[in-house]
Amino acid sequence: MPVLRNEIGEVLRDARLTQGRTLRDISSGARVSLGYLSEVERGQKEASSELLASICEALDMPMSSILREVSDRFAAAESLESVPVMPSIPDTVPELLSSMRTR
């Protein structure tokens, strides 16, 4: 299962890089230190809702679009986790034989 702070950080970094902007650009606009913003992007620090709002404003993006992308990533991870990796294999001969008889 993904970690929320990591996913938020990756989505924020992707948005910033898509815009061709630097950490310095966003940290200045969001009024947060460059080092702290870097830690948020790397998932090392948890952004408060106020800080996240400030970063979104500096990115000129609605917070809902950032959170929607994070939500989509979680949904994709959850759907991958629910898919069985291997089919169930009978671990005893009687189960195997009974399944062959019903065919």
Results as ranks from 00 to 15, higher is better:
D91I: 02
M100F: 10
S79H: 11
A47M: 04
S27D: 04
D60F: 08
E95I: 06
G20C: 06
S99N: 09
L17A: 12
E50R: 09
A75N: 09
T102N: 08
G35P: 02
A30T: 09
L80G: 13
E7N: 07
R73L: 05
L96Q: 10
R101G: 00
S99H: 01
Q19T: 06
R103K: 12
P84S: 11
S82M: 12
G9S: 03
L34A: 13
I89P: 03
K45T: 06
G35Q: 13
I26V: 14
E81C: 07
L17I: 04
L80W: 03
S88M: 11
I66H: 05
I66V: 15
I66T: 11
V11R: 02
V70K: 02
P94Q: 12
A47Q: 05
V11H: 01
E41K: 03
V93P: 00
Q44P: 00
V40D: 01
R31G: 11
I55W: 01
T92N: 14
S64K: 13
I66Q: 06
E81T: 10
I89N: 08
A77M: 02
D25H: 12
S54G: 09
Q19L: 14
M86Y: 08
A53Y: 12
T18L: 12
G29F: 02
S98I: 08
K45S: 11
A15Y: 02
T22I: 02
A30N: 04
A76H: 00
E10I: 09
I8H: 04
S88C: 04
L52A: 08
S28D: 08
S28R: 13
R31I: 04
A75R: 13
R31P: 03
G20Y: 03
P62T: 07
R68G: 13
R68P: 01
E10M: 11
L4I: 14
I55D: 03
M100V: 09
S99P: 01
S33Y: 05
L51Q: 11
V93H: 08
L23T: 01
Q19P: 05
R13W: 07
T92A: 10
L23G: 05
V11S: 07
E81I: 07
E46A: 11
A53D: 12
M61P: 01
D91M: 07
N6G: 05
S82G: 07
S27Q: 03
S64A: 14
E50F: 08
P90V: 06
G20E: 10
V85G: 03
P2N: 09
S99Y: 00
E50L: 10
P87N: 00
L96A: 15
L17M: 13
S65I: 07
